[in-house]
Design a protein around this nucleic acid. Sequence first.
DNA 1: ACCAACTGTAACTATATTGGTTACAGACGA
DNA 2: TCGTCTGTAACCAATATAGTTACAGTTGGT
Lengths: 164, 164
Amino acid sequence: MSTSSRFAVAVHVLSLMAWADDEPLKSEQVADSVNTNAVVIRRMLCELAESKLVVSQSGAMGGSRLARQPEQITLLDIYQAVENRGVFSLHRHPPNRDCPVGVNIGPVLNQVLDEVDTAVEKVLANITIKDVVSRLKPCVSTAAPKRKQLRKEHVLTARNQPQG
Amino acid sequence: MSTSSRFAVAVHVLSLMAWADDEPLKSEQVADSVNTNAVVIRRMLCELAESKLVVSQSGAMGGSRLARQPEQITLLDIYQAVENRGVFSLHRHPPNRDCPVGVNIGPVLNQVLDEVDTAVEKVLANITIKDVVSRLKPCVSTAAPKRKQLRKEHVLTARNQPQG
DNA sequence: ACCAACTGTAACTATATTGGTTACAGACGA
DNA sequence: TCGTCTGTAACCAATATAGTTACAGTTGGT
């Protein structure tokens, strides 16, 4: 099914911003946490900005931050912003219309795919970025309790590391 | 998300076989209804046979038919037979483990993806091939009531058409 | 025993999507 | 006006699916 990690990366990105509170994050910082190229992040940030999930600012001291409070951004919002297609696709080429099955399988499959999409959306609509971040925090405090000195402005502790 | 039509095609294929009752269908016949190449169908039939959803027979008068009754084959069975990955994927490259978000986003995302997969599976488990075929039949009788003379052995009315 | 009709499968090409990279125009704060 | 950002185009790489040709092996009919 999904060959793409777009949803996972988008959730990651917005979680970083929620974690950083209102501190604008630069695409380089985000890319460093996601472990990808900054342009890939900027492309995604554009999509997220079009969906009014983030706001970005150009120029020196620029960056991106959440457009709303983390509890007002659901995973469904993110899903719809970055994954345009449904969970499944229909045939690449339309089936044979001279076959009684071929001519009618499309609508029937669409009913099924709608049911599936609805179920997925129902799950995603009930999880917010705030939920994600709060699930994140216990891991940090148990896995790395010594890292308490982390300040929000420096949340990306590895942002100055060489690209290696 | 899904870039593939494998699930749609597989449901189509098994619907044809349910429609054809116990008459074995040749890969050429199936391909003609799906509107693709017979080898593509044979490849998929192999996967479906491995999952014990169809049985195939080589040689003259060979072909494939359902391995069980249509009401005993759910769309979940088909989904698991032909779509190996879940609905979403995680990051292509693992995130930065020096970032408190990056190091913990994976497990949190996996929880979410599991919830999504479970929801999808729940929907698919409740629909059988028999359901699909019975949703198909009304369309046929209303859309083409004159086609009543169709016999099951000749369900693929266009199977002798030129490939055009 | 042979032939014709099938499946199973390898090998290759075509196509599409995503991700990665470089490059650069424009915005903006200091 | 300069350095630091975003936004975006253009291109390449990697991956997955689909389509095609070819052929070995199986099987039923004769």
